[in-house]
Amino acid sequence: MVAYFTEIYNGLVSLLVGMGITFKEFFKPTVTVAYPYETLTMCARYRGHIELVPDDEGNPRCVVCGLCEKACPSNCISLGGEKPEGGKKKVLTSYVLDFTRCSLCGSCVEACTFGAIDFSKEYNLASRRKEDFIFDLYKRLEERRP
């Protein structure tokens, strides 16, 4: 009989302790943001999908060496380049990233010794169509050209 009432008493106490904690938390400042109305800035090292880095004139720094293509574990990158008439070096003509297969591992960025690719800060990526995730990075660079 005594045990029965002690149990009820203990139950009530632990219930009140728990409610006290949740009550206190209730008045603590909000820590969440109301996405998508508010967004956070991504940290400096955030790894989004890759993007070509332009040189001072806005041309791609890439020299079409193909190291990134080879380093990628999922074969996401396909490169196109050609030698312009009279020129010595190959020039980039297309750089296609198949983001549907990319695992954001960063091997490509590490493999590139010319600093020609970098991570973007983009994360708002949603679409119902697969083609929307095949990025033509060369075209994107052209569009960004001032």
Binding site: C43, A44, R45, Y46, R47, S103, L104, C105, G106, F119
Partner: peptide, 14 residues
């Protein structure tokens, strides 16, 4: 947040 600031990703770190 701490891990993201260093590694660049939040769950599937590389």
């Amino acid at each position: 947040d701490m891990l993201e600031a260093v590694t660049g990703s939040r769950l599937t770190y590389c």
